[in-house]
């Protein structure tokens, strides 16, 4: 652990400092330095296998790292923490998976209400009421009693977003939230994400939806080979990508 790295300033919600990770001999993350400010929407893109999922999963420590630090609200997520402390930090970082990962044995409303009840000790009645409001917000109030198997992919992902929001996290992480969806369902999920961004949510999104990136992102991180090789505003990135690999990546996407 690099103890010398100072805690970030207040408006930096997330700061990654020289984050490195390898699987055996294979270096997946080769020194990531970056910050996400409060209210900022960062879109992470890059070729498949470049380490995007690994990177975003290290932010709530679903993956361990080999060296470096990741500060969330000034606390190093990868420091030796008590289990309870790590759980508390994690509950403040929403995570949305490519494959939804809803709990199939629970109805939509219970998916959303369960963790506030079990993790935060919110009274069941209150948690259910709040869950219904959140389902309403993602347009699924009438599906509250449906089970995941009875929902379309787009609906499941919207429930998954509501589930993450139920913990009232100041930050939301998305790992390719629309990649597993049929094309006609991508829009409904992106529009929920857009409304979140509009309300000032701090977001890190791994996505290849360049329309979303253009409209919503404050900054784009382009990752290749385990490094962030370009950081730019959407305007700069789409009009004038500096790195040849980013140019090639964009050219490939346009085909």
């Amino acid at each position: 652990m690099t103890a010398s790295v100072s805690a970030p300033a207040k408006d930096q919600t997330i700061r990654l400092a020289d984050v490195r990770k390898s699987y055996g001999d294979f270096d997946v993350l080769k020194g990531i330095d970056a910050t996400v400010s409060r209210g900022e929407v960062v879109v992470i893109c890059g070729p498949s296998g470049s380490g995007k999922s690994t990177l975003i999963r290290t932010v709530n420590r679903l993956e361990e790292i080999n060296s470096g630090s990741i500060f969330f609200e000034g606390q190093d997520i990868h420091a030796p923490l008590k289990g309870r402390e790590l759980n508390r930090l994690r509950s403040r970082i929403g995570f949305v998976f490519q494959s939804f990962n809803l709990f199939p044995h629970l109805s939509a409303v219970d998916n959303v209400a369960m963790s506030p009840i079990r993790v935060k000790g919110v009274p069941a009645a209150e948690a259910h009421e709040k869950a219904l409001k959140l389902l309403d917000r993602v347009g699924l109030r009438e599906k509250a009693n449906s089970y995941p198997a009875q929902l379309s992919g787009g609906q499941q992902q919207r429930v998954a977003i509501a589930r993450a929001l139920a913990m009232e996290p100041p930050v939301m992480l998305f790992d390719e939230p629309t990649s597993a969806l049929d094309p006609e369902m991508v829009g409904e999920v992106l529009s929920v994400m857009k409304s979140l961004a509009a309300e000032g949510m701090t977001m890190m999104c791994v996505t290849h939806e360049m329309g979303f990136a253009r409209d919503v992102a404050d900054r784009i991180w382009f990752i290749d080979g385990g490094r962030i090789i370009e950081t730019a505003t959407p305007d700069e990135f789409f009009k004038n990508p500096k790195h040849p690999r980013a140019q090639r990546f964009l050219a490939d996407l346009r085909h």
Binding site: N87, F97, F103, S115
Partner: peptide, 21 residues
Amino acid sequence: PGQMDAARALGHGWFGAMRYV
């Protein structure tokens, strides 16, 4: 692993994830 990941990401401990998910 997705179910455990989802539960942990929501802040459940290992035993909580086992028990409820």
